[in-house]
Amino acid sequence: MNSFPSRLNPGRLVLRTLTNPLRAVREAGELETVPPWWQTFVRLAFPVLLVSVIVSQWLYQIIPPGLPPEAMPGAWGFGVYSVLAMSIGVLGLAWSAHYLTELFQGYSHPDRAMLAVTIGLLPAWVGKVVAAFPWPWGNTVGLLLILYSLWLLYGSLCGILGLKRGNRIGLFVATVFCGAFITLIFGWLLMDLIPGATPETRIGTTWLI
């Protein structure tokens, strides 16, 4: 019996993705119909990434980052920037996967592409919160969750979009490259447009991430 949450409960799906990712991907792939792409974004992707940004920014305010004040961006400016940049990243990855799937002989559908990308990115958004904790534990665990998210993204693209063997790695690499390129272009523009999104002095940190 497929117990995949039909109403896209964010908390339940994040927990399932972290504890039993293979089951979450398998159940999502078995769905005959999936929610429209915009519902997946509004009801699942955006709430999770928004909470991720709010909690991580709050942690940065109460945990000393070990950097001088001029090297830290404004909390509100960088928070707004993060939400917009991460939203662009989700949409960029989803539409890249959608348009590239046919090239790799898969089933191209924006609704399934958005669901696959959202499930794949859930651990990375948790990693953003964890990375706010002191070094080295915060950064180390956050990096592991990002790597875990890339693995899960590969699995969700394969399982939910129904790709044949031999075409899966190609779609994964092309999707990540195109999504990252779209995020970089628009994210760089946003960084200069939003007041407080960048620090006065950048010390060994790319604030696009």
Rank of each mutant, 00 (worst) to 15 (best):
F4L: 12
P5Y: 05
S6Q: 10
R7F: 09
R7H: 11
N9K: 09
P10C: 14
L13Y: 11
V14W: 11
R16Y: 04
L18N: 02
N20Y: 07
N20T: 01
P21W: 00
P21K: 05
P21L: 03
L22A: 15
L22Y: 03
R23Q: 09
R23D: 06
R26H: 13
R26Y: 10
A28Q: 03
G29I: 02
E30I: 01
L31A: 02
L31Q: 13
T33S: 15
T33H: 04
P35Q: 08
T40F: 02
V42H: 08
V42S: 15
L44R: 10
A45D: 14
F46I: 04
P47C: 12
P47L: 13
P47W: 11
L50R: 08
S52A: 15
V53E: 08
I54M: 15
L59M: 11
L59E: 13
Y60S: 11
I62L: 09
I62S: 08
P65R: 11
G66S: 08
L67S: 10
L67A: 13
A75D: 08
V80E: 06
Y81K: 12
Y81A: 11
S82Y: 12
A85I: 05
M86H: 15
G89C: 10
V90W: 00
V90S: 03
G92W: 03
G92R: 02
L93P: 00
L93Y: 12
A94P: 00
A97R: 05
A97T: 02
Y99E: 00
L100H: 01
L100G: 00
T101P: 05
T101C: 03
E102H: 03
L103W: 06
Q105T: 05
G106R: 00
S108I: 04
H109E: 01
H109V: 04
R112L: 02
M114W: 00
L115E: 00
L115S: 06
L115M: 03
A116K: 06
T118Q: 07
A124K: 07
W125D: 06
W125F: 15
K128L: 14
A131R: 14
W137Q: 04
W137N: 07
G138K: 10
G138F: 14
N139E: 12
N139M: 14
V141F: 11
V141I: 15
L143G: 09
L144Y: 08
I146F: 13
I146G: 04
I146W: 11
I146D: 09
Y148T: 10
L150E: 12
L150W: 12
W151N: 11
Y154M: 06
G155W: 03
S156E: 05
I160A: 01
L163K: 09
K164E: 15
R165C: 03
G166H: 13
N167I: 05
I169C: 02
F172C: 10
T175P: 02
F177P: 01
A180H: 13
F181G: 00
F181V: 15
I182R: 09
L184V: 11
I185H: 01
G187Q: 06
G187S: 09
L189F: 05
D192T: 06
I194K: 08
P195Y: 06
G196Y: 12
G196A: 13
A197N: 13
E200Q: 06
E200S: 10
L208V: 03
L208R: 08
I209N: 13
